[in-house]
Structures are given as structure tokens and as C-alpha cells.
């Protein structure tokens, strides 16, 4: 196990280096060559009328030097824990991420947990009632939820909420430690909505896995021994059906954290999604590089944790 973890960590390091080289090449070479650089985008039409100023900005932002040298400088800083500063406002990226990642992580985690609380029982119920009306209803519901984008539901809820109940979510964001009640009021709805769409897929995975496990010999043996249905389902079938679910859930957590931008925009939340989207919009290179690295770390870590969790769910799996 220890050897396996070390191997995986080394591979993770290689993966992260490759991700950073790829992102750097894309935003510093490909995009400026085929599209525009940060100064072109932020200075817009005025920048094109004042080339001297645009060149001065490029110098000021450190964009006019040697590209390879710039990459190594960034990488060396990252290795010392310094993620750098935003090109345009000089703010520390580490500080921004520290403030924002808690919001995105909470959104993603609450969304995931609420989605699981909703989808796992639904999947099990659908499997247990296979090809009967509860199964049809639950599957239809899952497809329906899967087909409805969460942000669209959010807009509908806001629109109907204001039309019918004179309601709209609070606008003043508060961290949990500042004002727990206000925090829950702000975060509850977007978190639930974020978890809704992936939960539809999980319903279908749980159902399929449950059906497969229920057909195994050991389940038939358990039933033949006279165990009641509840004990068979929860004691024997469910645990064995969860391995693919854990894989999907583990891998979707980083996506949930990274994919909250539209909800953050609708509900006025200071999360990572907005940070990344605005930095991409302005081509704020250090921010893009560092946030991508953070997301890559999250994904690699989630992968590793998922793999390490398999032996806990199925003792036959060993590393």
C-alpha cells in the first residue's frame, strides 16, 4: 500500500507539471498568437489607439520577457508556496484562493451530500421496485432532473419567488463564522441546486449497480438463508454496489467546486468559479495558472483518495 501511494504521488507530480506546462503554453503562446494578449483584452479599443501605453503595460505586467524564463520563475515561486499576484490589481492569489475556496468547497460539498441523500435512496428504491411504477416514476424524475440545467432552475426559482412571494435571496454575503443564520440563508439554495443535476446520474448508477449486485449468488444465498429484505439490501447489496458510485462522487467533487461560477453570479457569492471566470476573461495569467494548478491538485487528490477507498469497500481489492 505504502509503495503504491508513493508511486501515485510521484505520478501526481508529473501530472501537475504537465498540466502547468500545457496551461502556460495555451494562455501565453497559443491564445496571444491566435487571439490576443491580456493587454489587448483589458485595454480594448483604447489600447489599440495608444500603442506606447500598451507596450508599457506589457513591460509593467512582465509579459515582454523570455517565456521559458517566466514559466520557471512562476514554478519556482509555486514550489516555495507563493502563487503570485494578479496582473491587474496586484492582489495575492493565495489570499484570494484562501477566502474563496471555502465558499466553493462548501457549495460543492453540501451540494454533493444533499444530492447523495436524495439520489442513493432513490436509486435503491428504483432497483428494488424494478419495472414497477415506482421505478418508472423515479427513473423519469432522474432523467427530468438531469435534463434541467441547475442554473436555469435557479433563475426560475428567483423569478417565481419574486413574482409570487416577493422573495429574493439575501444579497450581503456572510461567512459561516461571521453570521451563521445569514450564511445558511444565502448558501442553502445554491448548494442544493448544485447537487441536483449530478444526483440524477447517481440515481441511475446506483439503480444499475444494485440490480447487478442483487443478481449475484451471494445475495441469493443470503435470501435463501432467510434474511429479511432490508438486511439483504442494506447489509449485503448496497455496500457492494457503491464502488462505482464512490468513483463518480469522488471525481465529481472537484468539478462541483470548479463549476459553481454561474451560481456564484446569480446568488452573489465570492467563490472560486467567479474568480477563475473573471481571470480567464481578462487573461490574468498568474491567476489562471495558479487556479488551474489548484484544480489539478484537487482532481489528482480526489482520484487518489477514490482509489485508496476501494479496499475499504471491497476487501478483495488490495494494493
Amino acid at each position: 500500500m505504502g509503495r503504491y501511494v508513493i508511486q501515485r504521488l510521484m505520478l501526481a507530480g508529473v501530472t501537475l507539471v504537465m498540466v502547468s506546462v500545457l496551461v502556460f503554453s495555451l494562455i501565453r503562446v497559443v491564445v496571444p498568437f491566435f487571439y490576443a494578449d491580456a493587454v489587448d483584452i483589458v485595454a480594448g479599443e483604447y489600447g489599440r489607439t495608444d500603442e506606447a501605453r500598451a507596450d508599457a503595460l506589457r513591460d509593467e505586467y512582465g509579459l515582454s520577457g523570455n517565456l521559458i524564463g517566466q514559466y520557471f520563475k512562476w514554478a519556482a515561486n509555486v514550489l516555495t508556496g507563493d502563487l503570485g499576484e494578479s496582473l491587474f490589481n496586484g492582489r495575492s492569489i493565495s489570499g484570494e484562493i484562501r477566502d474563496r475556496v471555502v465558499v466553493s468547497f462548501e457549495l460543492g460539498l453540501v451540494g454533493l451530500v444533499s444530492g447523495l441523500l436524495f439520489s442513493v435512496p432513490m436509486g435503491i428504491a428504483a432497483a428494488v421496485c424494478q419495472d414497477r411504477w415506482p421505478d418508472y416514476i423515479l427513473r423519469t424524475l432522474a432523467i427530468l432532473i438531469n435534463a434541467l440545467p441547475g442554473f436555469w432552475l435557479a433563475i426560475l426559482i428567483l423569478t417565481f419567488g419574486s413574482l409570487w412571494f416577493n422573495w429574493a435571496p439575501p444579497l450581503k454575503f456572510k461567512y459561516l463564522w461571521e453570521d451563521p443564520v445569514q450564511h445558511v440563508k444565502i448558501m442553502a439554495l445554491p448548494a442544493l441546486l448544485i447537487g441536483l443535476t449530478p444526483s440524477a446520474g447517481i440515481v441511475r448508477i446506483v439503480r444499475t449497480q444494485m440490480l447487478e449486485v442483487m443478481r449475484q449468488d451471494y445475495i441469493r444465498t443470503a435470501q435463501a438463508k432467510g434474511l429479511n429484505g432490508r438486511a439483504v439490501i442494506f447489509g449485503h447489496a448496497m455496500r457492494n454496489s457503491l464502488i462505482p458510485v464512490v468513483t463518480v462522487v469522488g471525481l465529481s467533487l472537484p468539478n462541483l467546486i470548479a463549476g459553481t461560477a454561474i451560481f456564484e453570479a446569480i446568488f452573489v457569492l465570492p467563490g472560486m468559479g467567479q474568480y477563475l471566470v473573471s481571470s480567464v476573461g481578462n487573461l490574468d495569467y498568474p491567476v489562471i495558472m495558479s487556479t488551474n494548478l489548484i484544480f489539478a491538485v484537487l482532481i489528482v487528490t480526489a482520484n487518489l483518495l477514490v482509489d485508496l477507498s476501494y479496499p475499504l469497500l471491497d476487501p478483495r481489492i488490495r494494493y
Binding site: 428567483l158 423569478t159 416577493n166 422573495w167 429574493a168 454561474i262 453570479a265 452573489v268
Partner: peptide, 20 residues
């Protein structure tokens, strides 16, 4: 003045209708 950043039109309209 409190000036939140609300980029989404539907969210702006909902907040206005709700008198926020």
C-alpha cells in the same frame, strides 16, 4: 450605498421586484 455585483439580468430583476 450598498452595491453588490449582480451580473445576471434575471437575478437583478428578481432582487428589484423583491424590493431589495
Amino acid at each position: 450605498f450598498d452595491i453588490p455585483i449582480i451580473p445576471e439580468y434575471a437575478a437583478q430583476l428578481a432582487q428589484f421586484r423583491a424590493k431589495k
